[in-house]
Amino acid sequence: MKIEIKDYCIRCGICVGLYPELFAHNFEEDCIDVLKDPDTDELKQQARDAARDCAVTAIFLEK
């Protein structure tokens, strides 16, 4: 599974706050970094939850 973050992400940090294993603020580049591809069932579920929790539907998952 791969995580894609669309350009219109508002960098609010919901995903960073709730799923810090997968997401981090990158203040220098002014973006959210995806830290790794979800490779366990737990992380895959977190990625799905992050997509659900996103304020602007900016998180997309590719199988």
């Binding site: 350009d7 219109y8 508002i10 609010c12 919901i14 709730l18 002014d30 659900r52 929790d53 996103c54 304020a55 602007v56 539907t57």
Partner: peptide, 29 residues
Amino acid sequence: GRGRGHGGALVGLYAMRDIIKRGGTYLLD
């Protein structure tokens, strides 16, 4: 709003799409 976000986030996104559709230009970054 959607997800854990507030409605203002959707307003900002949809406003941009609407304004561009109506001929406005956004110069981001």
